[in-house]
Structures are given as C-alpha cells and as structure tokens.
Amino acid sequence: MIYHRRNKKKINRKIITIVVVLLVLFFFGSNIKNIVQWSSVPVINIKNGIVYPFKTSIEYFKFKNVLINENEELKNKNKRLEIENLTVESLKGENKSLKEIIGYVEEVDDFNIVKVLNYPPFSPYDTFLIQTDKEKTFVADKVYYSGVIIGEIEEVYKNTSVVRLYSSPDKKIAVKINEQQTEAVGIGGGGFIISLPKDLDINNEDVVFVGDFPIGKVDGIESDIAGAFQNIYFRYPFNINQIDFVEIKKTEQ
C-alpha cells in the first residue's frame, strides 16, 4: 500500500516536471533559443578545430588506383573547363559592349562572406548554422555559395543565424528550366524534384535557375509509362556537406 502511494507520488512529480518544462518552452521559447544559439558558437568552434585535421588526413588512406582515376577525370574536366572559359571570356566582352551601347548601369551586389559553423549531416533538415552579426543579417536574406543560390536566412540570433536550404524537405521554390517556369520541391540532402509534362525535352546536365542565378543541374529523369508527367531530379552542383563559407546578399527592404 505504502509502496503504491510512493510510486504514485513519483509519477506525479515526473508529470509535473514535464508539464512545467513544456510551459517554460512555450512561453520562454525564444529566450531559450537565444541562450542556446549564443552558447553554441564556442562549442561548435572547438569541435570544428578538432575535426578539421581528420577531415584532410582521411585523403591519405585512399587507394592508389582511385587517386589515379580521379586525377585523370580532373585533368579531362580541367581541359573542358578551359575550352568553356574561352567562350565565357568572349561572351563577357560582348555583354560589356552591349551594355555600353544601351547605357546600362550595373547594380553592385552587397555580399557578405560568413563562416559556416554546422552543416548537414551535423545539422538536420538541410539547415546551416552560420556565424553572423545581428545588425548585418536579416530574415529572408538570400544565401549563396560560389555564385549558386542555396537558401535563405530563417532565424537571426545575436551571433548566429539559421539558414534553411531550398532543398530542405517539402520546401517549394519557383525555378526555370529550359525557359520553362515551374515549381521545384526540396527532397533533402541537397536534392530537388520537379514534375513536368512528358513532352517537354529535358536532359541530364540541364541547368536549373532561380531568377538569374543557377541552382543546380539535372541528374535524373524518371517517367512513368502510363502517366503524362515526368519527374526531374536535380541537385546543387557541389556537396553541401563540404561548405565552409557562404555569401549573404541583403534583400531589398
């Protein structure tokens, strides 16, 4: 009898504790978030300091054959890029002369380079934790990496911000592929899916744009024999798990 009463008391204490925790989270959630974000910077910086040497030394353990193949592949890629670069240079010149003819005044973008503290897979749901200044960063600022738009600032804290990538599961974004405006849905892991009519000619390696900025390359097309639509899969042209720095562009207020 006494045992039962003591047990009941224990359960009640547990329930009261949990209810109190939930109430505190509900009413003081944003303050708690601020404290956690503030205290996360030193811990994550220490972790990155410890992990970084291992990240680079893992290359030593690669097989010789793998390295030879990779080297060959990179040489070929380099040759192709050199040829492509020649075209880019001539296009740049042409673009500049055309702008001069029509008297176009170029806008100078205000980019801010910031350090990434945590990236997937350390952070879940395709989010980045970046080190920022509260005065210089705002919610909905666009985030870029190597000229590719990757996401938006979702939350701003005193010295950190949370970036949600467009590839975050179920996030929708308006894109352009082969001059066709459509909607892409994030599927996580830096990937997206687009559903388009089958009769549209889309190929692997086609570039997908958000406004004027590229966002990714098509890496898979899946079409159902009976259906009228095809599923197009594309992903960012780099590995999102290896991004150390990103650029933030202020949104026009």
Partner: peptide
C-alpha cells in the same frame, strides 16, 4: 531536445496555441 530544436528546429503552427518550436 531543447538544444537540437533551438539550433535547427522549425516551428509548426498549432491552431489555438500559435507557433511551437520544440
């Protein structure tokens, strides 16, 4: 839970309670 939700969590809208992040 509180740390992970504070760092990366996304809030969900609960009709009568508003936005809940945890």
């Amino acid at each position: 839970g509180v740390i992970i939700d504070s760092l990366y969590g996304k809030g969900i809208e609960i009709s009568f309670l508003g936005n809940f992040n945890f």
